[in-house]
Amino acid sequence: MDRMTSRIILPLLAACLLAACSPAGPVGNAAVPQPAKSVDVERYLGRWFELGRYENGFERGCEAVTAEYSLRPDGLVKVLNTCNAGGVDGRERVAVGRAKIVPGSGNAKLRVSFFGPFLGDYWILDHAPDYAWSIVGEPSGRYLWILTRSPTPSEPVRKKLESRARSLGYDVTMLRWTHH
């Protein structure tokens, strides 16, 4: 690596590492529960629409957020996240990652990576019997996502999912509802 490259790349890598290790914001659930039930991976695959989330740096400014899960040839799960980043150009942001199912978790816990060796927890805390909705968190309680198969579920469904998140210990006043 030449001197110019190392002056640019190394500080950038250090900043990314520090950002990954720093708190992501207020904790919305100090005692995240274990996932409520096992997950049938085949039924979980496909497109999900983000109904609501705890705001976070990597989704700041995003609307029309979707996540699409598919099996990769190596047995991992491909994660394709997209959002409309707004602005006058309505530019789309795309992030591609991979997820590994945590053994012994009933397929409800995954380790996800969008950037090299850095892994994050993805816990499917609860889901509808027909996989019409899912509530996703992780052990720190800083992140929460409410996902649905429809971009605009009915108001009673939204209220039900908000109530379910509250019953899981989440501060639902911190939810940011996503526009589709």
Rank of each mutant, 00 (worst) to 15 (best):
Arg176Pro: 01
Arg43Tyr: 02
Ser154Cys: 06
Asn29Met: 05
Pro129Gly: 06
Ser70Trp: 12
Lys109Thr: 01
Pro11Thr: 14
Val172Tyr: 11
Leu18Ser: 13
Ala14Tyr: 12
Leu110Met: 14
Ser140Gln: 05
Ser105Thr: 05
Leu80His: 13
Asp121Leu: 02
Arg53Phe: 10
Leu17Val: 10
Asn56Glu: 14
Ala132Asp: 14
Lys100Cys: 04
Gly116Lys: 09
Ser6His: 11
Asp2Thr: 09
Gly61Ser: 06
Ala99Arg: 03
Phe114Gln: 08
Val77Asn: 00
Cys16Glu: 10
Leu161Thr: 08
Pro73Ala: 06
Ser22Asp: 03
Trp48Asp: 01
Ile9Met: 11
Arg3Ala: 13
Pro129Phe: 02
Gln34Asp: 07
Ser6Cys: 07
Ala128Gly: 08
Ala64Asp: 09
Thr5Leu: 14
Ser70Val: 07
Arg7Phe: 15
Ser150Pro: 03
Pro11His: 10
Asp89Gln: 11
Arg149Thr: 06
Thr82Cys: 04
Ala30Gly: 11
Ser140Asp: 12
Arg93Phe: 00
Thr5Lys: 13
Arg166Phe: 08
Pro153Ala: 05
Gly57Trp: 14
Arg142Asn: 12
Tyr122Met: 03
Pro26Gly: 13
Ser38Phe: 03
Ser167Phe: 10
Asn84Ser: 05
Val136Asp: 04
Asp126Pro: 04
Leu168Gln: 05
Arg166Tyr: 09
Met1Gly: 14
Ala30Glu: 14
Thr66Gln: 10
Lys78Asn: 09
Arg43Phe: 02
Gly46Cys: 04
Gly90Arg: 09
Cys62Met: 06
Asn107Asp: 14
Glu59Tyr: 06
Ser6Lys: 06
Tyr131Cys: 00
Gly104Lys: 09
Gly104Asp: 10
Ala14His: 12
Leu110Thr: 02
Arg47Phe: 04
Phe49Gln: 08
Val32Lys: 07
Glu55Lys: 08
Pro103Arg: 09
Asp126Lys: 02
Phe114Tyr: 15
Leu80Lys: 06
Pro11Phe: 12
Arg166Val: 01
Leu125Phe: 08
Ala30His: 11
Ala108Gly: 02
Ala165Asp: 07
Thr82Asp: 03
Gly75Met: 08
Asp40Tyr: 01
Pro73Gln: 10
Ile101Met: 06
Tyr69Lys: 11
Asp40Pro: 00
Arg164Thr: 14
Ala128Val: 05
Tyr44Ser: 02
Pro11Lys: 11
Phe118Pro: 02
Gly137Met: 09
Arg142Leu: 07
Glu63Ala: 10
Val136Gly: 01
Arg176Met: 09
Leu12Pro: 02
Gly169Glu: 10
Ile135Ala: 04
Pro139Gln: 12
Gly90Glu: 13
Phe58Asn: 07
Ala85Tyr: 05
Arg7Lys: 13
Val79Thr: 04
Leu13Met: 15
Met174Tyr: 12
Leu147Val: 04
Pro26Arg: 15
Cys83Ser: 05
Gly169Tyr: 12
Ala165Gly: 00
Arg53Pro: 02
Glu92Arg: 15
Pro33Thr: 13
Ile135Thr: 04
Arg149Met: 12
Leu12Gly: 11
Phe118Asp: 06
Thr178Glu: 11
Met174Gln: 13
Ser150Thr: 15
Gly169Lys: 06
Arg166Leu: 05
Asp121Tyr: 07
Leu18Phe: 11
Phe49Tyr: 15
Ser150Asp: 15
Ser140Asn: 04
Arg93Pro: 00
Gly28Gln: 05
Thr148Phe: 09
Tyr69Gly: 00
Ala108Lys: 00
Lys160Asn: 11
